[in-house]
């Protein structure tokens, strides 16, 4: 089966799967000092790693990235120039309060569908799309229901598994019970597979991530589908669940993110927030100060740069001090 690699939660894996292709939530390797494209200072480590992963020979039929952030929008160009794979840059509007923005997102999904067909995929019938969507929806529902019984790492793996290419959700949705600890929220940019050790570190330090608000975590899971709407207009329902359902700091305005966070902090009795952001990520960095002002609980800023990418040594001490303060 042909594989489509992607790294944005605004790309619905159902849409890829419905075209008869395998969605693959991209796994990344450390870029370190490597810079195959001659990029200068200021590149977001995540964008850099994405470029490196693709140009180094990512095993996939094609790559889909989105315009959600400026660096990734531009990374798409380097991936296309220096890599061997077809690249699709999906335009995800920043604005969301107009019908036109909704329509643009739908139009981009349609354009993405044509891209899949060109790659050998098959345009799905409405019935097939609805069937695939409801299958994913059931799996997500089951995972949400199981969340409280899973360790943060297991839950993160299961969410990634649902997006495709990782450990199957059925295998990760069981595991050791979650450790007791200070309930924390982890929010911010993407937490790639090889960085999930952070979740273990939190538990070893006496905390527990009860809310995964990273890009790719549960914050960016779509809304549950309306079964009736999925049957009548599956593409429209798919777009609604993703485009209207993902609260992100990149949206303009981004109030929905803060509303989501406030609701979840209260519902899960969170006592502290870890904001994990990549250096040079303006979108998250700009929110740090505001978050500290509005958050009812303390916020710990964890910035990730090229040098300590993947290393938890620097984080460990700060995390322990943060948790000591919360106990």
């Amino acid at each position: 089966m042909k594989t489509v690699a992607y790294n944005s939660p605004f790309v619905p894996p159902e849409w890829i799967a419905a075209h008869g292709m395998q969605p693959d939530w991209m796994r990344l390797r450390a870029a370190g000092d490597r810079s195959p494209t001659g990029m200068g200072r200021g590149v977001c480590p995540f964008a850099g790693e994405t470029i490196l992963a693709v140009v180094s020979g990512l095993q996939a039929t094609a790559v889909v990235v989105t315009t959600v952030c400026d660096q990734m929008r531009r990374a798409a160009e380097l991936i296309e120039r220096d890599g061997q794979l077809p690249v699709f840059l999906m335009n995800v509007p920043s604005t969301w309060q107009t019908t036109a923005a909704d329509e643009l997102y739908v139009a981009e999904l349609e354009r993405l569908g044509r891209f899949f067909v060109q790659l050998g995929g098959e345009a799905p019938s409405n019935d097939k799309l609805a069937r695939v969507m409801l299958g994913y929806d059931r799996a997500r529902g089951a995972l949400r229901a199981a969340r409280a019984g899973l360790s943060a790492r297991r839950f993160a793996e299961a969410v990634a598994g649902l997006r495709g290419g990782g450990t199957p959700a059925s295998e990760t949705a069981v595991g050791p019970p979650p450790a007791a600890g200070v309930p924390l929220a982890l929010i911010g940019g993407p937490l790639p597979e090889r960085h999930r050790g952070l979740l273990d570190l939190v538990e070893r330090s006496g905390g527990r991530v009860v809310l995964d608000g990273t890009e790719g975590g549960e914050r960016t899971m779509p809304l549950p589908f309306d079964r009736e709407a999925a049957a009548d207009d599956p593409l429209g329902e798919l777009a609604r669940a993703y485009f209207a359902g993902i609260p992100d700091v990149s949206r303009r305005p981004n109030d929905a993110f803060y509303q989501w966070l406030a609701d979840q902090l209260e519902a899960r009795q969170v006592r502290g927030i870890l904001l994990r952001r990549y250096v040079w990520c303006d979108l998250w960095h700009a929110e740090l100060h505001r978050l500290r002002q509005v958050s009812p609980v303390p916020v710990l800023d964890l910035d990730v740069d090229h040098e300590d990418n993947g290393s938890l040594a620097r984080t460990a001490g700060r995390l322990e001090a943060f948790l000591e303060m919360l106990r």
Binding site: D70, S250, L283
Partner: peptide
Amino acid sequence: SVGATCDDVSALAQR
């Protein structure tokens, strides 16, 4: 204007 613009202005304007 936002979307295909630089993140700096977008993020600062949001603030």
